Computed example of a mutant assay.
Amino acid sequence: MSDQPTVRRFGSVIRLLPEKREQYLALHAEPWEGVLERLRASHVGNYSIFLHGDLLFSYFEYSGTDYEADMAAIAADPVTQEWWKLTDPCQERLPDTPDGEQWLALPSVFFME
């Protein structure tokens, strides 16, 4: 663990269930401020979710110094847990997604700053 934050970039993918599409899009049209505050407090920024067909692609940047602790704080947050109770049923994990993960993490193959 370093004391100096460096930006780490994360991309991930998951399937959006067609029958839950409108519900998922409506939730993300007006995200809960408590969820956004927790993300910011955990050093998550430039967070975007893109939609292609029935695939959701997520991208965010992490600028903290203790990724595991910050992700644990997000997972432990009661507001975020309530949000996930609404969003997770809209999604279907992809076959290669590791146990305990919702989204499949993608390897970075190119970056230009």
Rank of each mutant, 00 (worst) to 15 (best):
L39G: 00
Y62K: 08
P5K: 06
M1H: 15
G34E: 02
L94P: 14
S12F: 03
P78N: 05
D96Y: 08
E30K: 14
K20C: 13
S48W: 02
Y59V: 09
R9C: 01
E68M: 05
R21N: 05
P98H: 02
G64M: 02
E82Q: 14
D88S: 14
E33K: 05
L39S: 00
P31F: 00
E22S: 06
P107K: 09
L27C: 00
I49E: 06
E113L: 08
P107T: 12
H43V: 01
L27R: 02
Y24D: 00
L16G: 00
A69L: 06
P107L: 03
L56S: 01
V79I: 10
V7C: 08
A73Q: 11
E61S: 06
P5E: 08
T65S: 12
S42H: 05
D3L: 13
E92R: 15
R93V: 07
H28Q: 02
R9L: 07
W103L: 04
L55A: 07
T65K: 11
Y47N: 03
R38H: 01
L94F: 00
S48K: 13
V35T: 04
G64K: 03
L36H: 09
H52M: 12
L25A: 03
S58A: 15
G11Y: 13
H43M: 02
T97C: 03
N46Y: 07
P95G: 04
G11Q: 13
N46C: 08
Q102F: 06
R93N: 04
P78T: 00
Q23D: 04
R9T: 10
F111P: 00
A76V: 03
L55P: 10
A105S: 15
Y47F: 14
D3T: 07
G11I: 13
G53F: 11
S42T: 08
W103A: 02
E82F: 12
L17Q: 15
E19N: 09
C90T: 10
T65L: 06
Y62I: 02
S58R: 12
H43W: 01
S108M: 09
F57H: 15
G100Q: 06
T80S: 09
N46F: 13
Y62R: 11
S58V: 03
D70G: 04
Q91V: 00
A72N: 11
P5V: 01
S108N: 12
M1Y: 09
M71N: 07
E101F: 03
F10S: 14
T65H: 12
V44M: 02
D3I: 15
F110P: 01
F110Y: 13
T80H: 10
Q23R: 13
E37W: 01
E68K: 14
S63G: 11
S48Q: 06
R15I: 01
V44G: 00
Q4I: 10
H28D: 05
S58I: 09
D54Q: 15
Y24H: 10
L17S: 13
S108L: 15
E82G: 04
F50W: 11
T80D: 12
K20S: 14
S12H: 06
S63T: 11
L51I: 04
S2D: 12
S42P: 00
M112I: 07
D70L: 08
M112T: 11
L106W: 09
A75R: 12
D88G: 04
S2W: 02
V35Q: 00
A29F: 04
Q4E: 05
W32D: 09
Q102W: 10
